[in-house]
Design a protein around this nucleic acid. Structure first.
Length: 214
DNA sequence: AACTCGGGGCA
DNA sequence: TGCCCAGAGTT
């Protein structure tokens, strides 16, 4: 496949998905970059719905980074308990808030390289914050994006950075963060890891991995 | 590359 | 009661 045909194929796919999933707002509720950072950390291995239940109270109690530093870890662990992995997440959040206060004047930096340096913040979380809270083009690679990128033939690799680069190569910048939303939304609804619903899939005719063709 | 950390949802 | 979900850090 030439580079150009790869790009037109990708555009075709994402234009269809954009109509299927027109709401590209993150399913996480947040009002500030800081809230999105916390919510995204909590969303790891947890549903967005559950995170929203937890953050509704959490964000009333903790407004700024320094507020998280006022309570013992056990209290924060209790406040985020049902998001799973709560001990590590609480530890990460406390460490992050300390760094934000001491190094960044209490403000979340609008820079990918600075964000990924924070403890508990990987490339996916950093990209979500950069892309959604700051409007800077970024590809957020989660397991849905990995799986669908491979099934759709964009790449044959599970390496996060390679997938980021490939999608950046295939798509214009204004598609970047939304493409992550669309793939993740489609992955959750239709293109399951096991037993994907190809019979209900709006892009099955274009998909090289369509099980109905095989 | 494999392992660990943990809940909730669902049949 | 057991399977499924799916990010970051460590070794």
């Amino acid at each position: 496949m030439t580079s150009d045909s790869g790009k037109s194929f990708a555009l075709k796919i994402f234009n269809i998905l954009s109509k299927e999933y027109p709401n590209v707002k993150p399913a996480l509720n947040y009002k500030t970059p800081f809230e999105l950072l916390i919510a995204t950390i909590l969303s790891a291995q947890c549903t967005d719905e559950r995170v929203n239940v937890v953050t509704e109270k959490l964000f009333q109690k903790y407004k700024k980074p320094k507020d998280y530093l006022k309570v013992p870890n056990t209290e924060l662990e209790k406040d985020i308990f049902s998001t799973g992995f709560y001990k590590q997440k609480a530890k990460s959040i406390k460490s992050i808030c300390k760094i934000l206060v001491e190094k960044y004047n209490g403000v979340v930096p609008n820079d990918f390289e600075e964000l990924v340096k924070l403890p508990g913040v990987g490339r996916k979380t950093a990209s979500v914050v950069i892309g959604n809270a700051f409007g800077i083009p970024a590809i957020a690679v989660d397991t849905h994006v990995k799986r669908l990128s491979n099934r759709l033939g964009f790449i044959n690799s599970n390496d996060t950075v390679k997938i980021e680069f490939r999608l950046e190569e295939l798509l214009p910048e204004n598609y970047w963060i939304n493409s992550s939303h669309w793939l993740a939304a489609h992955g959750r609804k239709i293109c399951f890891a096991r037993n994907p619903k190809c019979e209900s899939c709006i892009i099955s005719k274009l998909c090289p991995s369509n099980k109905l063709k095989q």
